[in-house]
Structure formats: C-alpha cells, structure tokens
Amino acid sequence: MTPPALPFNIQKLGYIEYQVTDLERSRDFYVDIIGLFETARDSERVYLRAIEDREHHCIVLKRAPRAGVAHFAFKVESEQDLDALEAHFRKLERPMRWIAAGERRAQGRTLLVQDPLGFPVAFYAKLEPVEWFLQKYHLHRHGCPTRLDHVNVLTPDAQKGYEWYCNGLGFRPAEITEGDPPESRIWASWLFRKSTVHDIAVMTGDGPAVHHAGLSLMEPMGVIRACDALAGAGYADSIERGPARHGISNALFVYVRDPDGNRFELYTGDYLTTDRNAPPVRWRLDDARRQTLWGPPPPRRWFEESMAVSSIETGEEIAKQPALMRAIPTYVS
C-alpha cells in the first residue's frame, strides 16, 4: 500500500506520557528495575530515556490522581510539518491546542490533538539533545531498554483506524490480521514510519484506549535479565505475559505492569521494513500463532484490561465505546 502524498513527514514514535499516582515509586521502578535513565524531573513529572536515545526523553511519568496515558507523541521532520498538521486537523475540525516551546521540559513547539479515533496525540519537531548512552556499557542494567519502539492502541473499528493512520497520516502496514472472505475486514494492523515493524498497532477493542507501549531491548537475554530483576526486587507479579515469541513481528517479549497497572512490553528480535512497498504479512483471525508463536496463551486480563485516555480539552477520562466486533480470544483462564 502506497500512502497518499501528504504535506508533512512523521518520522517515528517519539515518547509516551504515563499517568502515575506515586511519582517516586514509579521513578524507582522504571529506573532501578527496568533500567531506564532519569534525564530530569520536576514536581509533576519525571523524564526518562533509553540507551539509544539522543533526545531528552522517551517516557514521561506524570503525577495524576489515576493511572492511564496522558498522550503519546510522534516526531516530525521540521517546524513546517507542525504547521501543515495544524491545517490538516483544522479541516477535520478536531480539538487541538499548541504547547509553546519551553512550556514542557526540553521540548519545542508541540501540537496536541484529539485525533479522529479519540486519542490524545502530540506532534513535535525538537527535543533537547542529551548524552548518548549506547556505549556507556558500565551504566547498562537489567533488560537495558534501547528505545521506545511502538504504542499499541484499541479502537472499536480497527478498519477505520487502519485507514486513518495510512491515508490520514502516511503510515505503511507491515502486518495485518483480517477476517475471512467475503468480508476480509481488518481486525488489527501494525503500521510504521521508521524502518521497523511498527510505530503504532491499531487493534479492535473497547476504546479509545491504549493497550501498551513497547520498549525495544538490545538482545534476547535482556528479556530474561529483566524478568530476573523484577522477580529479585519483589515484582514477579508484575510480569503479566511471557516470556514468549509473537507470530506477528517475530519478536521475543514479556509484558509488564508498573506499580499503577500501566502496561508496557519489553521487546526484541523483530525485523526491518526498509522495503517500504512490500505487501503486508497477512494473518487469519483464527490463527492463534499470530499472538503467540510459542509460549502460553495470554491471560484473560491481557485482552480485557487497557489504559484509559483523556480529553485534551477537559482532562476528563474518555468513556470507552464497545468494539463493533468481537473475536474469540485464546487465553489462559
């Protein structure tokens, strides 16, 4: 699928902002156990980065009365792209507002939008540069996350979500799950701007909601070291699913819940998508290998629980709408 020509260039998923109820507890979990690095903090937020990051942060922890996702953000190539995106969303009559340069720590001018699927999404061109930790091997710990790789979202109509991200924002599909003919409806899609399997996955489910964000690891043993660190620190119950390997993406993974229940994935071993015109890998909805190539099926809560998102206008949590269709999941009771 070739996306339409658009007057802006989204480069990659840039960061995600998690809401947490205890900022210090969450900071210690992500830094001391997971192995991210604290770049900065203030009274309301802690800014974290991974070893490949050359920008100020890839995860922000925001003090809040409830858990969830405040927003996720895509990096664009230039300031002119931000103006083009503003015009794009204005035509769609979507709620949006500007965050001025310097209003957020280390961050340039940023456009915050409630997209057509209901997600709070930011677009930015500049974050302050930071020291590159890739070869600071003496600082690497535990799973050693290398970057924020992707975000996985739930929406009642994943076909509509696929069309929005491909036609509206210029993403390309690496893999899709679709129903059997004659309907052949898309139930989930893995969509990219950078040259890996996905920057965002759009799945059928009650939404808008965020299922997880994925942190890439340097190599497979990082998954085991992360699990050992979690167990050794008394967080074994935070390991929700895995270790196992996905059929979709081919990645080795483990899913983890932070102290507030926010979900993230530690993920390694996917593949490059440098041939941007290659047709997507297609999976049948009834093929359980798409979820788990090997390893136990997901637990029930992996399907039934997700992270709420909020209105950029009121700050109130957005009520989830039921999915248009229901798959029959394969899970552990």
Rank of each mutant, 00 (worst) to 15 (best):
M1C: 09
T2V: 12
A5V: 14
A5M: 07
P7Y: 03
F8Y: 13
I10N: 00
Q11K: 12
Y15G: 03
Y15M: 05
I16V: 15
L23K: 03
S26Y: 05
S26V: 06
Y30F: 13
I33K: 06
I34Y: 12
G35Y: 03
L36F: 02
F37P: 00
R41E: 12
R45E: 12
V46N: 04
E55F: 11
H56W: 09
K62G: 12
R63P: 08
P65R: 06
P65G: 10
A67S: 13
G68F: 00
V69D: 02
A73N: 09
V76K: 08
V76N: 04
Q80F: 10
D81H: 00
R90E: 14
R94Q: 14
E103L: 08
E103N: 06
R105A: 15
Q107I: 01
G108V: 05
V113N: 08
V113Q: 06
V113K: 11
F119V: 03
F119R: 04
A125C: 13
A125Y: 06
E128D: 15
E128T: 13
E131R: 10
L134D: 04
Y137W: 15
Y137Q: 14
T146C: 02
V153K: 00
V153M: 00
T155P: 09
Q159D: 12
C166V: 14
C166I: 14
A174F: 08
A174K: 09
E175L: 03
I176W: 10
I176A: 14
T177R: 11
G179F: 11
G179N: 08
D180W: 13
P181H: 08
P181G: 11
P182I: 12
P182F: 08
R185F: 01
R185A: 02
R185W: 01
W187V: 07
W187H: 05
A188S: 07
A188L: 04
S189F: 02
S189T: 02
S195A: 10
D199I: 09
I200M: 12
A201V: 11
A201H: 08
V202C: 01
M203P: 03
P208R: 00
H212N: 11
H212P: 07
H212V: 12
H212S: 10
L215V: 01
L215Y: 05
E219K: 09
G222N: 01
A231D: 06
G234C: 02
G234W: 10
E240I: 07
G242Q: 02
G247L: 10
A251Y: 00
L252P: 07
L252W: 10
V254P: 06
Y255C: 07
R257S: 08
P259K: 04
N262D: 03
Y267M: 02
D270I: 06
P280V: 01
P280H: 00
R289M: 07
P297Y: 05
P299N: 07
W302C: 11
W302N: 08
E304C: 12
E304F: 05
E305T: 06
S306H: 10
S306V: 03
A308S: 15
S310A: 11
S311K: 07
E313M: 00
T314W: 05
E317M: 14
K320P: 07
Q321V: 09
Q321I: 08
M325W: 13
I328F: 04
T330A: 10
Y331P: 09
V332F: 07
S333F: 09
